[in-house]
Design a protein around this nucleic acid. Structure first.
Lengths: 188, 188, 188, 188
DNA sequence: TATGAATGAGTATTCATTCAT
DNA sequence: TATGAATGAATACTCATTCAT
């Protein structure tokens, strides 16, 4: 009888190790050996679950944006869209305090999207869903469809841009308050 | 008889070759050989001007943000800050249509800033000057200093965020019109 | 209650899988994993029967030449040695049409014999028995012992050489007719 | 000014190192590192001249059979074909005493031809030219074209077969005398 | 007997960098 | 100033082999 199937525990192990190593060394600078060590496996052990580095990068990329999409589901629908968004920003902001590597690895993936079509598709899909989630909220609050689409784009851009500034300042910035006042201004 | 100093023509040659190669292959994925070939030099020829790859990366990083700072000087000071900013957005947007690699290489450098302190300093300095230039414009138009700082941050974030969306959509988006309507909303 | 001994069925399974894989990928290029898959076993399963790859190679080598020695027993003894040999050539030739991998794997083993003493012993022993079987036939037909030894060597060389040409031409050559006319010429 | 072009000396250096290493360890077992060391170069130095192992193997294969084709040009044309061939066999036999690795590497390539189409083409082409050179000699001596083709095939097979036996016996066999008596018998 | 999981020890290949000219 | 030649130090990826079950 063979050993029990361990993939359900190995895969998260490997992906979170990869996130850490990718954040420190960059996607291209990361060594499979370091990912393996971080995951507590041998190099060959990683290759048992991902057939090469590209596959691992893609898997993490997808997991990363899937996790971000999860966050979008938390956007509360209701009237007073501004307030709903502000509530959500608080949630996201709180989450950002933890998971140090999360933002960094995100920028790694944005850079990757700049030169890899497969990665760009994933990123674009994420932004479209992001925008659509916010547009829905605005429509539910009475905005017309056209205006909502436009406003949603502005809000997404603003929030992503603040994210960027936040990273440039090594997280030493008050994400939530800037984001909330920006959103209020956009929707005023 | 010393040979003529060619560095004033070699250095831009090399930097623009590097920008192209970094955009295509990533900063870490780029090979010195490809930079050299793109610049029409031999590998060793590049090393005459940059002592190693890190020096080349840093030089391009600095040139890149210096060029972006140049763009900030074009922000026209005057009353009706909104209109001044919109004029400027049109300028920047027109420039973005050319220089394909410019945006991509920018994201490479953001990712680099995520894991390299030297790069982060350059990036942060850029954002501070960016913000300060816009704050000045707002103050010149009558905004109080405190409010101007905050608004400037929001504007910078918005514009950078739109930049990001623009890249995710491979430049198939109307940067200028979204930027202008966003800025108008923020300043309304 | 001991489980039934499956070696009598596993071993031919493994050896014939190995023959196929060795023929396709070469002795050194063959992977234990592929042998196992071809045999319908797990990798570890193969190791139950052969303690390592060398042992498997040696076992197949020995089986291969033992099978060839079997063929020598079919050489009919009697007068009119030429006719007896031609009959035998027809038998061998018919067998060659089947078992595609058989010839290829044979050349793998000859190459192996070129650099491995153990393999060379097996190969040399085979040729000596080959030669001796043919010499016996010639002696039975009245040739003197000395002349028979020499003729036998020539015949073995001729047949092996034709085999080689046959392989070079991917089997698209009439082995039997060339072999028979060659043998007739040698014995005329 | 760059260093002078060294390829005319490096390439034979590398190929003869490769021949030696391939003979000892087999084509597949040979390590690029060992080839490099034997050639007195670094691993990367070998890759400067051959872009990968396959290219090196193919180059050596071609050189090997080109060298063998050279030997065919030494077959003297004239009447008394048997005697001409015997003279040639003496030449070839003398050459075989030197170049230890020559035969071994030849068998490596035959095995390779068994599983690689590109290699097989080279080998087949060699045999066709071999056969044609001998057929020409026979025709020059009065044999009809059809008979010459058939005889040539038998002779080639015989000589290659003796070669094989010679290798199996580690060169401890009298190649020339067996070859000559075999050829005489075939042409009697 | 049988196997999926795991790995140590390789192995081909790459690339930043140096150097002789 | 300029470059082809050369290499040391990586690094992705592989595979024979072992082991827990």
């Amino acid at each position: 009888m063979p050993r029990p199937d361990r993939s359900h525990e190995r895969i998260p192990q490997i992906l979170s190790a990869a996130a850490k190593v990718f954040a420190c060394d960059g996607v291209q600078g990361a060594r499979m050996e370091d990912v393996a060590k971080e995951a507590g496996l041998s190099k060959a052990g990683v290759y048992l679950y991902y057939k090469n580095k590209d596959a691992l990068v893609l898997a993490l990329l997808e997991q990363f944006f899937a996790a971000n999409l999860e966050a979008l589901k938390l956007i509360p629908i209701g009237n007073r869209a501004v307030d709903r968004l502000c509530d959500w920003i608080d949630l996201v902001s709180a989450a950002m305090q933890h998971g140090e590597h999360f933002q960094t690895v995100g920028f790694e993936f944005l850079a990757l999207a700049g030169r890899d079509d497969e990665a760009r598709k994933v990123v674009l899909d994420f932004y479209l869903q992001y925008q659509s989630a916010i547009a829905k909220l605005l429509i539910a609050d009475g905005t017309t469809s056209n205006a909502a689409t436009q406003k949603a784009q502005e809000i997404v851009a603003l929030l992503e841009g603040i994210n960027l500034l936040w990273m440039a300042q090594s997280g030493k910035m008050d994400f939530a308050s800037l984001a909330k006042s920006g959103v209020r201004a956009l929707l005023s």
